[in-house]
């Protein structure tokens, strides 16, 4: 039973992948739906990363799109400028792609560290402002780099991403975050969220854990950016303006902060919703705005706030004879 529980997420994702592919082959799902699913999963990853920062550690970052941009542009630069697919034997391409996505994640993580280190010493919404500013500065800097297309956008990126890759990275993100959140690191993060002063008194180095969470969250955004770049085959700096960051915030809080299930639900639902509302044409965003207000009025904690589907909580091993509560 325990073993099953441990591998349930992996099995679930594998089953999901097989199901989608089967429906795709059977012609029920067209590549339109598959593409929306892929976008949804990428958005889920970014939201999950943001959830670690905002939901679990109690900080307030609103510039996540900047890190997606850093990751996306970095990994696209690797596969397009450094090692273009034309110089590679086909067998090497997936490897280069994998490496490039990780490099994108690492670079975004480094940026996260550099930004988090000075601004997370402070309390309050300062991180919010600094991340917002960072996102805009990154965007205006990218425009000035002609090698990645500047304002014309970065075109000709090989389209390596596919459902399998994205499912793998998505699963990997869930796995990493689940293990992180339910480790002593994660508990330290939650302690910071609940009461920073008390956490500090208990010997938790709050700045360290906040910076760590921020770095990991940014790195995940970077990885998602790498996947996005190779899915679209094109990047434009304006794709990552602060309105995009706001989208991720909305996914997070509509889904429910502090819950991985919530992030996944919020991002998935709200990625699909605007597509479903296409028939409304211009009224689409009007309805979306109203829907958001009503969702929060009736479920202020978000769809799944504070709760978690059971398979996302690892079984906690208790020492022999342990009788205390959770």
């Amino acid at each position: 039973m325990d073993t099953l529980r441990k591998y349930l997420p992996i099995l679930g994702l594998a089953a999901f992948y097989v199901l989608v592919m089967a429906l795709r082959k059977a012609g029920v799902l067209t590549s339109y739906y598959v593409q929306i699913l892929m976008f949804a999963m990428i958005n889920c990853m970014v939201t999950l990363g943001l959830n670690l920062i905002n939901g679990f550690t109690g900080q307030f970052s609103i510039g996540q799109a900047g890190f997606v941009a850093v990751g996306g542009y970095t990994s696209a630069a690797v596969t397009t400028l450094l090692l273009p697919s034309s110089v590679l034997v086909p067998a090497l391409r997936p490897l280069v792609f994998l490496v490039s996505v990780f490099i994108g994640g690492i670079v975004a993580g480094i940026f996260g560290y550099l930004i988090g280190k000075p601004s997370l010493r402070l309390k309050g919404d300062y991180l919010a402002i600094v991340t917002l500013a960072f996102g805009e500065i990154i965007r205006s800097l990218i425009r000035l780099i002609p090698q990645v297309g500047g304002p014309r956008g970065f075109s000709g990126i090989p389209r390596y991403s596919n459902l399998l890759w994205i499912v793998l990275f998505f699963g990997g993100t869930i796995w990493v975050l689940r293990n992180y959140i339910y480790s002593s690191f994660g508990r330290a993060c939650i302690a910071c969220r609940e009461d920073e002063l008390a956490a500090g008194t208990m010997g938790v180095d709050t700045t360290k854990y906040k910076v760590m969470a921020f770095t990991i969250g940014s790195a995940i955004a970077g990885v998602a950016g790498g996947l996005l770049a190779h899915l679209l085959g094109y990047l434009h700096p304006d794709q990552f303006n602060y309105l995009k960051s706001i989208d991720f915030l909305v996914y997070l809080y509509a889904g429910g902060a502090g819950s991985m299930t919530g992030s996944i639900m919020g991002a998935t639902l709200l990625t699909i919703l605007p597509e479903m509302l296409r028939f409304l044409s211009g009224w689409r965003l009007v309805i979306y705005g109203i829907a958001l207000v009503f969702l929060m009025l009736f479920r202020p904690q978000g769809i799944y706030g504070g709760k978690e589907l059971p398979f996302l909580i690892p079984k906690i091993r208790r020492p022999e004879g342990y009788e205390g509560g959770q």
Partner: peptide
């Protein structure tokens, strides 16, 4: 929670 009002603010803004 403080941030739910933030999301309604975003919703109002989109509207």
């Amino acid at each position: 929670p403080r941030l739910s009002a933030l999301i309604t603010a975003i919703g109002v803004s989109i509207f």
